[in-house]
Simulated scan of single mutants.
Amino acid sequence: MQFSEVEIPVPWGFISGRWYGNQEVRPILAIHGWLDNLGTFDRLIPLLPDYIGVLCIDLPGHGRSSHLPPGINYGVYDLVYIIPCVVKHFGWNKVSLLGHSLGGIMSFAYAAMAPDTVDMVISLDVLLPMRVENSLAIEMFSSNQEKLLVEDDRRRLADKDKKPPSYTLAQMSRNIAVASLDSVTEDLAHHLLHRQVMKSQNYSDPDKFYFSRDGRVKYFSYWDIDTGLGVEMARRIGNKPYLILKGTESLYLQPRSDEVISILANGNPHFEFHKIEGGTHHLHLQSAEECARYIVPFIQRYRPQEDQSNRENNISFQEQPSKL
């Protein structure tokens, strides 16, 4: 499928993206999950309606987007800021969101914060963040602080021409499969690798590569949305077109999201929830065709082709960005 490379300026650099398909109308904004990049949508995008484009972005520190400045760590709550950055850059009046995992959490949060600017949400295998027990949360926070210090030291040494660890592509594919618990299998790992590896400059390892993403993203600040807050957020979203897909083999959409889902669904004829049989957490990558079976009619219903000529949905790169 044809695409154009996009760079969206932000105060610390740029957000890298690919705009697939139609660029004459406002696209769907697709946001990937933690430690992934826009390549996670490679298999799904060609299956979506061709009359509307999809803008897939790499989050900061991921893929080919700029890393945050030294001394600034990655937090889930702060990443939500990327959505209004993109909206403002293109001057959209509305935004349609497609999010997987972290991207789905960001979409839920933004839809609650600015419901009047969101016209539909598609969430893949997530709603609220996974709950971590208090004792484990403290240990994880403590461990992450130590690892961030190590990562800061490693970055300083890298600035002095010490190269990061390098691997063969086969080793990298295996690393991704292990880290994802085979949610991204070795034969699918190349969809992520093409955005986040660089060839080693070490002449003794000419056939090796290193991960180019920011090592600090591995130790991001966890944001827990408790059920009470989640319920209030769902109430603010209201009767908005909202599609949630869950992989039956995934544990990421936990039972604690049930009450929030019931609020989104209550009296809302535009809410849909479907399970993808055998689907893993990366259900849109492993089971793209099955996901498209639900996503395509949802898009056709709430971003129909006949509405794409509406001036509000059209894009003018010359017009002034809307104020948020």
Rank of each mutant, 00 (worst) to 15 (best):
E5Y: 06
E306T: 11
N313K: 10
L149F: 12
I72Q: 12
E259N: 09
N73R: 10
I28D: 09
P297K: 04
P206L: 02
V150Y: 03
K275C: 10
G278T: 04
T117N: 11
P69H: 01
D187F: 02
D207N: 15
D187L: 05
R303C: 13
K323H: 12
P165Q: 04
T185F: 00
D152T: 08
Y110E: 07
Q320D: 12
F220M: 09
L59C: 11
L128F: 01
N202H: 03
N37A: 08
F209R: 03
C291I: 07
Y74V: 13
K246L: 02
H62S: 04
G53Q: 01
F41R: 03
K147L: 14
F209M: 04
N314Y: 11
K160S: 07
R293F: 00
K160I: 00
T248I: 00
I237V: 06
V217Q: 09
M106A: 07
R174Q: 15
G104K: 08
I244S: 03
F298I: 08
D187E: 14
R303I: 14
M120C: 08
G228Q: 14
D125F: 13
F211H: 09
R235V: 01
L127V: 01
P60Q: 05
F273T: 05
I72S: 09
P27E: 07
L264V: 05
Q201F: 04
V76F: 01
V86H: 07
D153M: 13
E232K: 15
Y222P: 00
V150C: 06
L192M: 08
E306S: 07
F14Q: 08
Y77E: 13
I57V: 11
L29M: 08
L35T: 08
N144H: 14
V217N: 10
V217T: 15
F220V: 10
E289M: 05
L251I: 07
L229M: 14
K246G: 01
K208Q: 12
V126W: 06
I299L: 05
V10I: 05
I122H: 05
I263P: 01
L181V: 13
E249S: 10
P241M: 00
I122G: 02
V121P: 09
K240G: 10
S212P: 06
V150H: 04
Y219Q: 13
Y242I: 04
D224Y: 15
Q320I: 15
L181E: 13
G75Y: 11
I83P: 03
R301N: 07
M172A: 09
N310L: 09
V217H: 04
M1L: 13
P69Q: 01
I28S: 09
Y242M: 05
M172K: 08
L29K: 08
L128E: 06
F271D: 03
I8Y: 01
V126A: 07
N239A: 13
S287T: 13
H282M: 11
V80H: 11
R156D: 06
Q254E: 14
L127W: 02
S135I: 09
V126E: 00
I315A: 00
S221F: 12
Q254I: 01
Y302M: 02
T227V: 15
L124H: 07
E249D: 12
I237Q: 05
Q196L: 13
P206S: 04
L127F: 02
K160D: 07
I45G: 02
Q318C: 09
S142I: 14
K147P: 03
I31K: 01
L193A: 04
S309K: 12
Q145F: 15
I295T: 03
L38C: 04
S309A: 13
V296A: 09
R256S: 10
N175K: 14
I83E: 06
